[in-house]
């Protein structure tokens, strides 16, 4: 690459490579490594990365098409012989489902009547955003997926991502047409979970292994092998009750989790635009802000800046803001243990 003689014709194949440029590129690479740290990544770097993946996502999607087709050939031929049986079984299930559908509609109507009578305020139904994974960068540095949906489709940082079987991870870098999903197995992933049977709380900690670790279980945790683990929603970022996996004891006496989402390839996923409940202060601010204009708005903004809001809201809410503010520039860290970020803005919460 670099010539042994600086800025002179390289006698090797008559190719001229400048040593100065080579050294400059080495220095530039080193500088990029030094500055592009996940913990302190600047907004400009994050925007650049998101913009690049926006451009690359269609190409990656194109490259993935033949692979998906090849992967489908084997199962297609294997299932040909079972089609008749499967068809009959599906018809039977369809008849049964129609019966349950009828019941569900009746129950829904009944619930609407009750809710109207009791004036119950329930969170609005949130549509999930389906997306194909277009890149699979399970490398030595990050365990993530690139999906072909971005902010144009309603995806935002911090949103949970699920597949058919359970929680896959969270969105941590959102472009306009693509987003990166941090898998539960990644070293930076921290998700509060609970045992479905006993409600025992723990933190699911990714360590780049196939089975993430369970930490902060307490001294005498009520957990058994095979227990179903779901998201606890304690961080305010994830909804409560998303299936995560099964508890697996380790030889050292600890616990790990066999993820449900690993039962099948993570090809198609749903992004859940989960809106966590706002704290009273944040709600008050939301109500105030639209009614103000001109100087009045500035006055309110200066009074209810991020410091004053985040210092009063509950821990779960601050964790949400912390992550939503950082995720565009950063892989979300431990959202439970971290102190609230003073620079965050509550309006950015997913």
């Amino acid at each position: 690459m670099a010539s042994r003689r600086s800025t002179r014709d390289d006698a090797e194949n008559g190719v001229r490579f400048s040593r100065t440029i080579f050294i400059a590129l080495i220095v530039m690479s080193g500088a990029l490594i030094a500055f592009d740290q996940p913990d302190s990544r600047s907004q400009a770097f994050a925007n650049f990365r998101a913009g690049f993946t926006d451009i690359a996502a269609p190409l990656l999607e194109l490259a993935a098409q033949p692979v998906r087709a090849v992967k489908g050939i084997g199962p297609y031929f294997r299932r040909q012989g079972e089609l008749a049986e499967e068809n009959a079984e599906l018809r039977r299930q369809l008849i049964e489902a129609r019966y349950w559908e009828d019941i569900a509609y009746r129950q829904r109507d009944r619930i609407e009547v009750y809710e109207a009578a009791l004036n119950v305020q329930t969170p609005a139904t949130q549509d999930r955003i389906g997306a194909w994974t277009v890149a699979d960068p399970r490398g030595p540095f990050v365990q993530a997926r690139l999906i072909g949906r971005g902010s144009q489709s309603g995806v935002a940082d911090g949103y949970p991502v699920i597949n058919l079987y359970g929680l896959v991870g969270r969105v941590y870098e959102t472009g306009q047409r693509s987003a990166r999903v941090l898998l539960l197995t990644d070293l930076n992933s921290r998700v509060p979970v609970m045992v479905d049977r006993s409600n025992a709380r723990a933190i699911l900690v990714g360590d780049n292994s196939e089975y993430p670790r369970l930490d902060y279980l307490g001294r005498n945790p009520d957990i058994e092998a095979g227990d179903r683990l779901v998201s606890s929603g304690d961080d305010g970022i994830l909804p409560r009750g998303l299936p995560v996996g099964q508890a697996v004891p380790t030889r050292e006496g600890g616990w790990r989790v066999e993820l449900y989402s690993d039962q099948a390839p993570i090809d198609f996923v749903w992004v859940w635009p989960f809106q966590p409940a706002l704290g009273p202060e944040a709600e008050a601010e939301e109500e105030l802000a639209p009614g103000m204009d001109g100087l009045a708005v500035e006055g309110v903004a200066s009074q209810t800046d991020a410091d004053s809001v985040t210092s009063d809201v509950p821990q779960a809410m601050t964790a949400t803001n912390d992550t939503s503010a950082e995720t565009s520039a950063d892989i979300p860290g431990d959202t439970v243990d971290e102190a609230p970020n003073a620079d965050t803005e509550p309006e950015d919460a997913p």
Partner: peptide, 9 residues
């Protein structure tokens, strides 16, 4: 950039 690795590695 494509694999999500730190830039420059």
């Amino acid at each position: 950039l494509l694999t999500g690795a730190p830039m420059g590695v």
